[in-house]
Design a protein around this nucleic acid. Sequence first.
DNA 1: CTGAAAGCGCTAACAA
DNA 2: TTGTTAGCGCTTTCAG
Lengths: 350, 350
Amino acid sequence: MRQKRGGRAAGVTMEDVARVAGVSAMTVSRVLRQPTLVNADLKARVEAAIRETGYIYNLVASSLASQRSGIIALILPTVASSIFTDSVKGVSDVARTHAVQMIMAETNYSPAEEEKVIEALLRRRPDGFVIVGVSHTRATRALLEKSGVPVVETWDSTPTPIDSLVGLSNFDAMKAMTEALVAQGFRRIVFVGTATPDRRAQMRAKGYEAGIAEAGLGAPLILNAGDLTSMESGRIVAERIAALRPRPDAVLCLNDVLAAGALLAFQRMGIAVPADIAVAGFGGLDFSSHLNPSLSTVDIPRYEMGQKAAEMLLGRIAGTAAQGGTCEMGYRIMLRESTGGSRPTEAKAS
Amino acid sequence: MRQKRGGRAAGVTMEDVARVAGVSAMTVSRVLRQPTLVNADLKARVEAAIRETGYIYNLVASSLASQRSGIIALILPTVASSIFTDSVKGVSDVARTHAVQMIMAETNYSPAEEEKVIEALLRRRPDGFVIVGVSHTRATRALLEKSGVPVVETWDSTPTPIDSLVGLSNFDAMKAMTEALVAQGFRRIVFVGTATPDRRAQMRAKGYEAGIAEAGLGAPLILNAGDLTSMESGRIVAERIAALRPRPDAVLCLNDVLAAGALLAFQRMGIAVPADIAVAGFGGLDFSSHLNPSLSTVDIPRYEMGQKAAEMLLGRIAGTAAQGGTCEMGYRIMLRESTGGSRPTEAKAS
DNA sequence: CTGAAAGCGCTAACAA
DNA sequence: TTGTTAGCGCTTTCAG
């Protein structure tokens, strides 16, 4: 520890290590960052000095000097949702492999909040962004473009990404599930969304509508399950559905959490699933296959999507990938017991 | 944009803003950090200049100069577990309120990995750590102590925290649940843990053992549900339990995810819960009350624990809280249908 | 292969 | 209330 001007205390610095090892700070820096360029003897001495002094490399100083923070930012609607945890893990695993740190922030499904969050993160000078969603305010887009920081958008699709895209067609996926339900013989299919829908939710609802329209099943029926996704919201909407006359024969939910809440609520009300009413979800979450009856769902490669997005971003950062890169992820329709599939059926798409 | 030595490009700096506003960089800095100290006229000019130039404050440079990063680090066993998401949100919400950013890292339940992760994070010079768990390598402890960074440990209890503690007695909580099951009349209670238990898991198992011993129920029986916590692990262990003779009359699980997996698996096997076998979990996760039958569990104030930990940490960072602060969180035994409680019963503790 | 000089963009301390 | 000076601890560049 040293004392400098005004009594600021500081820890061991590279300079201190250099002094102990009898070399210059530059050599210490090289040992840490490009060890092959340094003579083996010196390297050993430096490493000993590092151990001896308990030196801890200062990435703040490094970031400032090198103009690279070694941080990638991940922007998502909410951290408290099981829907995104796997994607977070995908990003995080790739980041760790490349000795990059990930910093996360949530937007609460609000583009305005997203704008604030991105501006706040930009102050940390991240080397890149992974952003869930493709719907942003004009200002967000301008901010990102002006900053020149690579961006990978994901979990949605668009022909005009800010930079690069790891896409998922929520429309196609939900339409495919709707068609699968129609093929199973369901005719009065109700869709359950949320009161404050984001673009991904809207695209799913539209996919449902398109599926219904193409099947010539008359007017689509969409209910909202309250502000946020939770089993409780699913339960409440199930009660409303149970009261509908004539009663729908199938319930298609925006996601698995709502679907599970609805499924369990129907059972509790004495309404048999799928005999009285079928239920299907979206997301392919872990628990869906364990429920009784097992829940039909659209399986999304959540982990792989995070992984792919991070890899693409690192490529952009390294300069090995060009701007405009796009990669579309697929989905799988999993027909299980909750829609009357006697045995688990699978159909692959995209 | 400017060009300097060697052709490095850089963005708009505080200096640039100062020039446009006709003030010194220090004034710009003050407008941003202590606006009340600046004359209203100048402030307005500076703010206009910031907008005009599109200036984005550089927290990297700020951190280096001020020796405060404005980052708190959160260390947890895994990010992909529903058990911790609420605690993460608690920390994150408090952090945001105080204009601090949170950075997260996972240890995969390994103290050795924790050591690496903490060392890596220390390079970012976080202002403090929130760490899930109180079991660390000697080196980790030394590292943290030497660094002088405030630390709040949580989700476990110890008389000797590194710095401060937001405690939870896993032992007491699981013992209380065991006693509750005994009081309900169960006599052959099996405990389900995981193969790679951390200290929290061990303390829960010990709590179970103590409860069994005090009730004079003979030898405790502990099964391991595989490496990691998942519904699938719960399902598999349920099959083993179903084959035990004489069959246990209750299954107490390390957490709600295992318990849910077991409960659903029993049902699928045609074993009635709780008529044939009771099931209880730990954690008080959202879904537990929605299952049929609803799952008895030990409710833990997960969000509040994160919140409290973050608040305590910020107090330590600000210097308003003393080292050694401790706060013990309680738990609630929730007896629900899965253990035969006809209607939801609650008992409060700690 | 190694080192010296000159910053990176900001803030603490001091002066005016 | 505002400005000046001297760093924060590292890396880039360039010379040797």
